[in-house]
Design a binder for these strands. Structure first.
Lengths: 183, 183
DNA sequence: CTTACCATGTAAGGCGTTACATGATTCA
DNA sequence: TGAATCATGTAACGCCTTACATGGTAAG
């Protein structure tokens, strides 16, 4: 009954594909999940403990060339728990774009500042796109090797498409601002 | 110094355009801001009190045909505070799409369930699109009447473009899933 | 030798969501 | 008369973010 938070499920989802350490989970968050989810160590480690306490995961401490690791695995109970969540419709899809907020109130700060915000946004997006494109390309190739790849690809395709839409918008928005100030 | 939270700034931004009651602010959140921001009464009213306490806004209680209202206005200090935030680059643009999460782990729940999630997502998007298109159309017409309209339009264009990208992805994703299971 | 990366965690505080509570007016 | 909408708020709880704390290894 406890913990309506999604972090538990995200981690359980990752563990359903492979055993991982907390550190590796964080890396997944920052790469493959980054364009639609995120979590820091401050959420991950407590959640991992919670998962073990509730027997949704087990942990094994190992030592790999002098470096100690704690490797987590999903249990049968955890799989059932994960599937029960997966079978329920998503309740909340939300965007919190500070950039858009700052744009919305752009008349208070002026054209130049607004363009600065757009450029900022654009730079971040452009950084991500090559990574997404590579993912899609790679996953397309291997989509039939393992069922899971197909689903990863779906989300990568989402990221690619949306980020490209962002870019198009950046261009149009800047044109519009420049044109309006020409008059 | 207190309250790094963005809610204060969103409200201040809304108040920079027009005087509003808490109830009206909530409506703005649920309509024009809905595709990139959100806040409930539980955030709005406390924030409004905070704003008044810090002299970033003032309140006037009125009675309109027996119904009492509290109308909030931005102060000079509030405008400066707002502009100072507006002039700083956005730190955080984030998406939290539960739908995408459920897709990512789709191999655990199967094709049909995944398509259900996509349809769900698609329905919500389709509902919003006409509203966004109307906004863009209307704002294009009146963009020169007031400076602020131009900026509203920019964000509405963003919403329209992104939502259309979502839709395209929904179609493609479903095709891909169906095709893969045909073999 | 020092920087980057691997690796694990805790604690406090902040913020937001949810549920609860109340009451008037308008429209069908 | 009942539903929808207008209107304002509080309280608790939960979650996440941030900052802090520590230490080993690999590579240049």
């Amino acid at each position: 009954m406890p913990s309506e938070g999604k972090t538990d499920f995200v981690i359980l989802g990752l563990l359903s594909h492979e055993d991982l350490t907390g550190y590796e989970i964080k890396k997944r968050m920052d790469t493959v999940l980054s364009y639609f989810w995120g979590a820091g160590y401050g959420s991950i480690y407590p959640s991992l403990n919670n998962l073990v306490k509730n027997e949704n995961a087990t942990k094994v401490e190992t030592t790999e060339n002098g470096r100690k690791k704690i490797i987590y695995s999903i249990t049968e109970k955890g799989k059932i728990y994960l599937r029960s969540w997966l079978s329920v419709p998503a309740e909340k899809d939300e965007i919190r774009y500070e950039t858009l907020l700052k744009l919305f109130f752009g008349s208070e700060s002026g054209k130049d500042k607004t363009i600065e915000h757009i450029n900022n946004f654009e730079d971040k997006i452009r950084e991500q796109i090559p990574y997404l494109q590579n993912s899609v390309k790679l996953l397309k190739k291997i989509q039939n090797e393992e069922d899971a790849h197909k689903y990863y690809m779906l989300t990568a395709m989402f990221g690619e498409k949306v980020y490209n839409a962002y870019l198009e918008w950046c261009i149009e928005a800047k044109q519009l601002l420049e044109k309006a100030s020409e008059r």
